[in-house]
Design a binder for these strands. Structure first.
Length: 351
DNA sequence: TATACGTGGGT
DNA sequence: TACCCAAGTAT
């Protein structure tokens, strides 16, 4: 059949291109080779969820040096794991990473399940990651659909249905072009193509190995696919954070597992709900940093007013005194790392 | 199906 | 500047 032949040609052309142009990435084995370590594939895939290759690089190196196996990771202390993840974002991933490593080590004898279904049952492993690990680490034929694949497929077939309604149509098309062999290479080739050639804006169609078979290339504006609704405006919020210092130590708390920055060390702070100026946690020589720390999250932006004081005792509630000269090792998420830096600068400016 | 959930880089 | 986007998952 003509259509079936076209689908096979797409995979063949893409794999031939990948054999020459595959990006060399720390977690990747050369095209066509076996032996990818499931632990490393899984770790990289979780880190790469909604996160750029450039941001993941140093974290992947740090994690694999410190925890070379899934058993080693399973034995990590929660606080160490969360601190090592600090700055990478989406902290539910770190909590699920640890839960997943412990499940693999203790319930699966240290070996990752080698099927999509088995992988999908693990914490933090969704449809995409299960398919990616099954294909890349175990050579299974699995249909791997991430945002890159969605874009490439929407263009190849000029799918005009807007996202997210187009997902079923896109998946069906991805299913048709996924080859029976080299599914792992095919998945990575599609993602490389999306990241380097078939980019969201200004795609490099001139060097694309699939342009002959691309329905969008035949239109006036290939970048018009996939069709998406405009994003909603982000609300602005404000809040307060408190730096309490005593004998060269600052008081840090751990945020609850649920919600923003869940499970992370943090400065005590208000609930960011625009409430009127709340009272500080305790008495002290309070001063306020001149400019609030501005931080943009996925679905709102925050202006955090940062206050600092020397105190005589610990405030009420759970927490720990952390050495100020080692604040960089506390594993603060970026918002609070910036708040700490703002306090340091404010004090320098006053002296 | 819609929303919550980080961060940094690109335009 | 303001907005878009990135190898998604859980609820």
């Amino acid at each position: 059949m003509r259509v079936e032949g076209r689908d096979r040609k797409i995979a063949g052309d893409l794999l031939a291109h990948y054999d020459v142009h595959a990006r060399r990435l720390p977690w990747r084995v050369p095209p066509g080779s076996n032996g990818a370590d499931p632990y490393r594939v899984w770790l990289s895939e979780v880190m790469l969820q909604q996160t750029t290759v450039a941001a993941v690089g140093p974290y992947y190196t740090k994690f694999t040096e410190r925890w070379p196996t899934v058993e080693a990771l399973a034995d990590a202390a929660d606080a160490d794991l969360m601190a090592a993840w600090a700055g990478l974002g989406y902290y539910a991933r770190a909590r699920n990473l640890l839960a997943c490593a412990r499940a693999v080590a203790r319930e699966h004898g240290g070996r990752f399940p080698d099927t999509e279904e088995g992988l999908r049952a693990l914490p933090g492993v969704g449809a995409y990651t299960a398919a990616a690990v099954a294909a890349i680490a175990f050579g299974r034929r699995a249909v791997v659909v991430d945002a890159n694949v969605e874009r490439v497929v929407a263009r190849l077939f000029a799918i005009a249905t807007p996202l997210p309604a187009a997902r079923a149509e896109i998946r069906a098309a991805a299913e048709r072009i996924t080859p029976d062999t080299r599914a792992g290479d095919f998945a990575q080739a599609m993602m490389d193509l999306g990241a380097t050639v078939c980019t969201p804006r200004k795609p490099a169609c001139g060097v694309c190995p699939l342009r002959e078979d691309c329905a969008a290339f035949a239109t006036a504006d290939p970048a018009a696919f996939p069709v998406k609704a405009p994003n909603k405006a982000k609300p602005h919020r404000s809040g307060h954070g408190w730096w309490m210092e005593r004998d060269g130590h600052v008081w840090l708390v751990r945020r609850p597992d649920r919600g923003m920055l869940g499970g992370m060390r943090a400065l005590p702070s208000s609930d960011w709900s625009d409430a009127p100026d709340p009272a500080p946690p305790m008495a002290g020589d309070w001063r306020t940093v001149g400019e609030p720390v501005l931080h943009i999250f996925t679905h709102f932006s925050l202006a955090l007013r940062v206050h600092h004081a020397h105190v005589e005792a610990a405030p009420a509630g759970e927490g720990e005194w952390w050495p100020v000269d080692r604040i960089g090792e506390a594993g603060l998420p970026t918002l609070f790392a910036r708040a700490a830096e703002a306090v340091r600068k404010d004090r320098d400016a006053r002296n």
